[in-house]
Write a protein that binds this DNA or RNA. Structure first.
Lengths: 340, 340
DNA sequence: TTGTACGCGTTATCAT
DNA sequence: ATGATAACGCGTACAA
């Protein structure tokens, strides 16, 4: 027994009366092993409570049993949901999760990430949006030989490397709901330029209007950057319009909360004078006033699937989906437009 | 050069014309080294871009360069703030952060945690509340030889193992503010039993009332469990009281949001008919209506200090504080009580 | 001050 | 199918 108190592979081998390599074969499920030999070793392993040392394995295999979460996402709740999903998948396995925030915009981001991956020899990484949209990052992972799965709002990669939500379709459905309620002047608060999610959501919005043959002047779209303040400012511009839009689709909930503030500030009643739909279904969405109609994407499920793809053996490709459906959650922030 | 492409300590030693041990001494800043020898080795290290292999070091040192974040905190934003603070401290060092949620309540929690620490050989762990309040967890860390620092609402451990916020004082100050505004019937929505933070905040509240010689019947305290719904239910009970309280201190912001909902539901105006103070200063606090007066605790700073304590060398004990001050953020949810 | 030899716990190679 | 022996890359006695 080693001085650390933990039994090692040598202890198992000695007590079982076999070689280290045989024990190693048992651990790694080598197919070429007689059953009685396997049984004998497994008994000793159970008896000793032996667990392979991760550090030694990492050194020998040149690969760590760590899954990285690489993100530059500003939304705390989103990141936590992803972590929760990952952890679910990793629970009970030999893998642990290490979190690595990166600075999109930093000129050395790619280089930093490469060094990180090379040094830590991660088993794989889960790339969260928006950094997941950067093809060079994926390219770097491939070069280094680090497995990766990207989360995103559209298929940016092959199935094994991707878990995507159908933002465009979901927003299209949400907008159709607004139209079905009778709205014809609908404003859009867009997401930040360069975010794929912003693009997809906007496209879904425009598709719905076009299909309904509703006119959509440029003046009805206001830029936002996913923050409360940007939603507030964008809403003020939209609400200054004559005629005023009777509904607004906001590309995320946080901006939608800003819209509600702006509406309240000028004495507008939501949803009587203005209907609002957001995106994300953040925990506060049902708690703000009025409770917010929004689009919920199965973020934890996506992260869980992504992690399962990451740790899946190469032999049997996992049956995890690569496309996930978002759903419209109808609450109280939408109503038919008031009679004019 | 190794086949992996990365230079090893052997490459450095060979090219510099010295032994491995000498290179090792340079890396580990051994004092007994001639200057020209150090210079020679450092030059080769820089030239090769050599970085010590973490896996090999972990094996040799029987200690991983990983800092764990152990938590069972339900508040996503709080956890993210802690992660951010930790990562700030760890940035630029050789340490990485691995996240480990635990299940308080699970009978095997302690055993699971012990296995985790023993197997991964973490350098140290940051214990978040409320699991940080469990002395057995700290005890386990000590036994295993894993450094730890606890975050909490009171001094539960020696300075080197503790970063604490002064919840009691902060709540006392917040309550005094309510009293100064003229409130005499003040309700309390308490936190969950068994949480130290809940206890400290309640004590601070009671201290303020006692100092002001204000009567405080049991009926004015309602139990909550830090969730929106619990705050809503507790508020409904409090608002049924005759006479009704003119102000409510809620032990966290989420419950305070529930209080606002309950007040609105019965046509009460905040703050005219009811003043409210929360605790946490969550990101939504300024965005709900009315903007919430609350107590802000420097959570990221605390986590950063905790991480710095963890990775500090044993020789020079860090000068990081172990007590942090929370501050009252005055917004629009408090006003003098309406004339009766 | 510097070097030699060996240990850390595992996997891989190549025999048998 | 199984075993002896050599990596993996670094740290540490102990010797020089």
């Amino acid at each position: 027994m080693a001085k650390t108190g933990q039994p090692t592979i040598n202890d198992v081998a000695r007590i079982a009366g076999v070689s280290k390599k045989t024990v190693s074969r048992v651990i790694n499920r080598s197919p070429l092993l007689s059953d009685d030999m396997r049984k004998r070793v497994e008994d000793v392993i159970a008896e000793l409570g032996y667990i392979p040392n991760p550090q030694a394995r990492a050194l020998a295999l040149r690969r760590n049993f760590l899954i990285g979460l690489v993100h530059d996402n500003p939304n705390a709740q989103t990141v936590m949901n992803v972590q929760q999903g990952m952890l679910e998948a990793l629970h009970g396995t030999e893998f642990e999760m290490v979190v690595r925030p990166v600075d999109r915009g930093s000129a050395t981001m790619l280089e930093d990430l490469r060094h990180f991956l090379e040094r830590q020899r991660l088993f794989g990484v889960l790339l969260m949006p928006p950094v997941s949209e950067n093809d060079q990052v994926a390219q770097t992972c491939t070069e280094i030989g680090c497995r990766y799965v990207r989360m995103g709002s559209a298929h940016l990669d092959s199935d094994e490397h991707m878990v995507a939500s159908n933002d465009r379709e979901a927003v299209r459905a949400a907008t159709e709901y607004l139209i079905a309620c009778g709205h014809k002047r609908i404003g859009l608060i867009a997401g930040p330029h360069g975010f794929r999610s912003a693009r997809e959501r906007r496209l879904g919005f425009e598709e719905a209007l076009k299909a309904a043959k509703i006119n959509f002047p440029r003046s009805l779209v206001a830029d936002g950057n996913y923050t409360f303040e940007s939603g507030l400012i964008a809403a003020e511009r939209l609400l200054d319009l004559m005629p005023r839009p009777t509904a607004i689709f906001s590309c995320n909930d946080e901006m939608a909360a800003g819209v509600i503030h702006a509406a309240r500030a000028r004495g507008l009643d939501v949803p009587r004078d203005l209907s609002i739909i957001g995106f994300d279904d953040t925990p506060i969405a049902p708690h703000i006033w009025p409770p917010l109609t929004t689009v919920r994407w199965p973020i934890a499920s996506m992260a869980r699937s992504a992690a399962l793809k990451l740790i899946a053996g190469d032999e049997e490709p996992v049956a995890e989906p690569s496309m996930f459906r978002s759903t419209l959650i109808r609450r109280a922030s939408v109503a038919p437009p008031a009679e004019t």
